[in-house]
């Protein structure tokens, strides 16, 4: 989790003033890559023609052929269909983590800012305490309690990503709250929840979305790492992180296709999420 905080800190320092109204070329490329990846996650498993779990030991590490465009893995399973059907398992997890932690963090922060006083202090303390626990470690502890698999890991990571969003939203909401229009709304007799949800939230939504995009890349890395070490998605289900792990066997026999293809998909997705998130954060901060 600190990785996220550190990167965000550095981006604040290295930020350049964004020019123009629209995204940069790099930003557009990143957005398109993410859109394609999202389509893969939705439709990928439907496009699979070869059973991704069909074992064919006679064709272990087979080179690409007509029926198998990317070749076959150590058990002769079709790599292309495994990568396709693995898209959903690899991407839904991080998405859930981002959605849950963003909702949780935003709700906590808005409530803390509006109620203020001891509640704000208490939330800040809890957030600090959770921040002290590295995300991957909390996920490993969770899998040791509730068993291997994504379920426990997703819950653990959602909890551990919440402080990051909460801190950012708290800062932004505090700034908003001190603006004159909030005082005007209060004079009109609007209640705190209404002001927070209908006026403050829409004004900081861009910043929240930008940081959610950034955390998607980190959540993807954490969950893939967990599957890679064998504590996340279990065999034979296809998953990019798990495929890098099973592909390790091929590495030592100079048959690295499985590990490399899966790695490539992970790196491309993370890079896209990072650059798009980066640019969106700069924009929303420049506007503030």
């Amino acid at each position: 989790m600190t990785a996220l905080a550190v990167v965000a800190e550095a981006r604040r320092r290295t930020r350049r003033r964004p020019r123009g109204k629209h995204l940069s070329v790099l930003g557009w490329v990143a957005a398109v890559v993410l859109a394609v990846v999202a389509l893969l996650a939705v439709f990928g498993p439907l496009l699979v023609t070869v059973d991704p779990n069909a074992v064919d030991l006679g064709n272990a590490f087979a080179d690409p052929s007509a029926g198998h465009p990317l070749g076959q893995d150590a058990s002769g399973r079709d790599l292309f269909s495994r990568l396709l059907s693995g898209a959903r398992t690899s991407l839904v997890g991080p998405l859930l983590v981002v959605v849950v932690s963003t909702l949780l963090g935003t709700g906590l922060a808005l409530a803390a800012v509006w109620v203020g006083g001891w509640f704000d202090t208490a939330v800040a303390r809890v957030v600090d305490a959770v921040f002290a626990f590295p995300g991957l470690l909390l996920a490993i502890l969770a899998t040791s309690i509730f068993g291997t698999g994504l379920q426990a890991a997703i819950i653990a990571l959602s909890i551990s990503y919440t402080p990051y969003i909460a801190r950012i939203v708290r800062g932004a909401a505090l700034r908003e709250r001190s603006l004159p229009y909030i005082a005007a709304l209060r004079v009109q007799g609007l209640r705190g929840t209404a002001i927070s949800l209908r006026h403050i939230l829409p004004n900081i939504a861009g910043l929240i979305f930008a940081n959610a995009t950034l955390s998607f890349g980190f959540a993807l890395i954490d969950l893939a790492a967990l599957s890679f070490i064998g504590l996340g998605v279990q065999a034979p289900t296809a998953d990019w992180g798990a495929m890098v792990g099973t592909g390790m066997a091929g590495i030592q026999q100079l048959e690295p296709q499985e590990a490399l293809w899966a790695s490539l998909l992970i790196v491309i997705t993370v890079a896209a999420a990072n650059s798009l998130g980066d640019e969106l954060v700069k924009r929303s901060e420049a506007r503030a």
Binding site: I221, G245, Q252
Partner: peptide
Amino acid sequence: STAAMAVPTFVAAVVLTLVFAVELGWFPV
């Protein structure tokens, strides 16, 4: 450097093993 920041540790480990330990044999696996 910007590109390298998107590389997860486990991917770096796998690729380094492939290139420098298995292919080139400079380091132990």
